[in-house]
Design a protein around this nucleic acid. Structure first.
Lengths: 264, 264
DNA sequence: CGACATGTTGAAGCGGTTCAAGTAGGGTGG
DNA sequence: CCACCCTACTTGAACCGCTTCAACATGTCG
């Protein structure tokens, strides 16, 4: 019933371990989507809370054996691969409510590293137990597949951006998507802090840091946004969105009113 | 027991519908991996064979309702998205034994189009039935997740290539991976025909057709390969592989002897 | 307060695109 | 079977978007 001996990680207060998913603010984003209360309890029982991962620390590294997936409760991370020459390529930034590590399923070792951009709190979900639970709970299996499918769609858009988009379009696309993700989490879509460095953004978008810097100034001069170090305030999200020219599958259902909102 | 009324598609001879997965040469690549005989039969019963898809025809298009995934039996396809301006971005080329369409799970509509590069034969697998079968068959659920995880890994490498690699490195990476995929299917790893046009390759790798053309001549001059129209003969796969500089997760388990093979 | 990381701005250089022209297949109809 | 066309591919030369290099500014942390 209660969580058994916890592997090498300090655990949190016991009451937090019970019925936590129901209380979690990330309810819709994370795993429990569409599950019934009884099922939620079952899920809760296999979830472990790990001690916070401090900025710069790794949640896992390339080559680590795969044993669990991680749901982000707070903070943000970056995932990246390394090529033969040791060059680091950032795959994505990850926000609360997202599930990390599913790409390791087939090889049973992690194929990218996950590093905290700020202090991060995660739920560790042993994958074997999650998998067997998916056999009992119909919605869970579908939800796992669904999450991976979303990840694929997102990568497809990222591919399209890297393959052909101009630098303006890349940054616009990045900011637009980030804005929408914040919005989905109940934060402001127009004002937020970047937890990642310019270097990380440049890396993700396949360009030079200097170019990112120049673009931020350019966007500011054009009145698209205000930026001061990490803080970004989007002023003209419609233009930014038009500039982004993302692939059609990236378009959310509420795009129309999003562009109406700020076209004034 | 037998397959019911087939939706709008001509069906093949009835005996082909029975126990087919066991006889299929793509046994290890496709779905049945690690399943027992009884399970294979269950799977076989939900699989439908569609009439061949001719070159240029679509298996599905962006926006089509998602009802099935497709296992490629013969031939090859390309999948691509379209951005707001209508620009087509190729996501990947797909060979026999691969499963197509899983990226549509979450939205229940296809987010990319799949078009045949040559005459293609596919097994159509109604997704709802595949999903419920996954509840009965433990290995199947894992296999589905595993396939999607592999797809993610592959996209990660593609991302890394598009973000930073030089044009030489991109084409080398493309050829190396294609070669390995042919090898895995029992074809020659050093001699094969490209089913896609130079245009398609250029699009996939985010560069101009002219550059692809120049690179093929350059590679030939360097003695890395011989190429005549669609036919490619790789002469120095070791150098090509070194040039590729792919992300480490792309490295297959047998890379060592692969590079030894041709380093003479 | 100094030292180091991070970010900004300017100027030069180059990798790859774009434009332009030409070549080669491959299919069609006479 | 050949003449024809059209598409796919190749090759050359000019151009330009972005990177690279360099110098400086600004935060941040011990």
């Amino acid at each position: 019933m209660s969580v058994k001996t916890m592997p090498r990680n300090r655990i949190f207060k016991l009451e937090e371990l019970r019925n936590h998913c129901q209380k979690c603010s990330l309810y819709q984003l994370c795993l429990p989507m569409g599950l019934e209360e009884g099922d939620l309890n079952k899920l809760d029982q296999i979830i472990q809370r790990r001690r916070p991962v401090e900025k710069g620390e790794f949640l896992y590294r390339i080559g680590d054996p795969f044993s669990a997936v991680y749901a982000i409760r707070a903070g943000s991370l970056k995932t990246f691969t390394t090529n033969q020459e040791g060059h680091e390529q950032i795959i994505g930034f990850h926000l609360p409510g997202e599930l990390l590590g599913m790409d390791a399923i087939s090889r049973e070792i992690h194929t990218c590293s996950a590093q905290a951009l700020e202090t991060v709190s995660v739920c560790e979900i042993p994958f074997e137990r999650l998998e067997s639970l998916s056999h009992e709970i119909p919605g869970l299996q579908h939800h796992l597949l669904s999450l991976m499918s979303e990840e694929l769609q997102h990568e497809h858009c990222h591919l399209a951006v890297l393959a052909k988009a101009t630098v303006e379009s890349r940054l616009a696309s990045f900011l637009t998507q980030l804005s929408e993700r914040f919005k989905a989490r109940g934060f402001s879509a127009t004002e937020f802090n970047l937890s990642m460095s310019r270097n990380d953004i440049a890396n993700l978008l396949g360009m030079a840091v200097e170019t990112i810097s120049r673009l931020f100034t350019q966007f500011q001069d054009q009145g698209l946004l205000k930026v001061e170090r990490k803080h970004v305030h989007i002023l003209d999200s419609a233009s930014l969105h038009a500039m982004a020219n993302t692939c059609s599958s990236a378009i959310s259902e509420e795009d129309d009113d999003a562009s109406q909102n700020s076209s004034s």
